[in-house]
Simulated assay, not measured.
Amino acid sequence: MQQIKPSTSGGSTHRFSWSCLRCGGWLPSFKPITRTVVDRVVPYIPETSVYFFDRVSRGALDLAAQASASGAVVMFEPSGRGDMKLFKEALELAHIVKYADQRMADLAGNDTADNLRLEIQTLGSEGLRFRLPRNRRKPGWRTLNAAPAPNVRDSCGSGDWCTAGVLSKLASRGVQALDDATVASVTAALKFGQELAAWNCAFEGARGGMYAQPQAVAVRSDLLPGTSHVTTQCVDNGVAADLVSCPRCDVA
């Protein structure tokens, strides 16, 4: 459950609760992919252009390896390190790695992974920086300022929207499309992702924009920041409680 509260600076802050608003019991949390799921998914891998994961597990890495072998772009956006052996393997498998400087600044410039095509380090309100290790002429860091967000209600999920925008521009044809990308096209893809992140700030919740403006999934330019006028509606705890599916008290 995401809880949004006004901040002293005039914006908003959010935090997450793992307890049900009705019964107080713990809500289900992340569980790693099982071998059964891996076996069930493998036949579909050849038709996949992108494989994204943010937590390491043996099953997730097995699928990443299969996807990579089939020509898909493998993107790793770590939410934490977990098992260090698996974490290192994830970095070696990934074609794109994206992480926040506040959490994992020590990953910057990791040249040990031969697969790495694009490294993205987000810098919060200051934007992001990126580098292309395989670009022999210009392998160093490039910085992009954050896209303006004129209507900020909640920033939750903006990083995910940025990722989705980047992948939609660079990975539609798998790793071959990524290899064919120029510095200019990578820069444009990152700026597009930043625009989606800024657009998302106008809505409450990580998927608020999808529900309020479903046509934005088609990425119309008139729905991006600076050109759209969007509204959202808060729900109190009584209403929110009715929307929670809790295995402990759900009677449906």
Rank of each mutant, 00 (worst) to 15 (best):
V38L: 03
S7F: 03
D114K: 14
V244D: 01
G59Y: 07
S17P: 01
S49W: 01
H14A: 13
D83Q: 05
A252N: 10
C156S: 15
S245D: 05
G226V: 10
G10D: 12
G11E: 08
V244S: 01
V166N: 07
S9F: 03
L132E: 12
S9K: 13
T232P: 00
R173W: 03
I33P: 05
S70P: 02
G238M: 03
M210F: 13
D154I: 07
H229Q: 12
A198V: 08
R55Q: 14
D160V: 04
R129D: 02
D236H: 12
S7H: 12
Q121S: 05
L27R: 03
K85V: 14
W141A: 07
T122Y: 00
G140T: 08
T227E: 05
V217N: 00
F30A: 03
R131H: 07
L93S: 02
P133G: 00
V219M: 10
R131E: 03
L107V: 01
Q215R: 12
Q233M: 10
D39T: 13
A90N: 11
D236G: 15
K191R: 15
Q213H: 10
T182L: 07
V37Y: 01
F30R: 03
V244G: 01
P247A: 02
I120T: 06
S9P: 00
S12Q: 11
C23V: 05
E47Q: 14
D250P: 00
N115P: 01
E77K: 01
G174S: 10
D83R: 08
W161H: 15
Y51T: 07
P139L: 01
S228N: 08
V239Q: 13
P247T: 09
P214G: 04
G80N: 13
S79W: 00
G59D: 01
P214E: 05
S168A: 15
F130Y: 15
A171L: 08
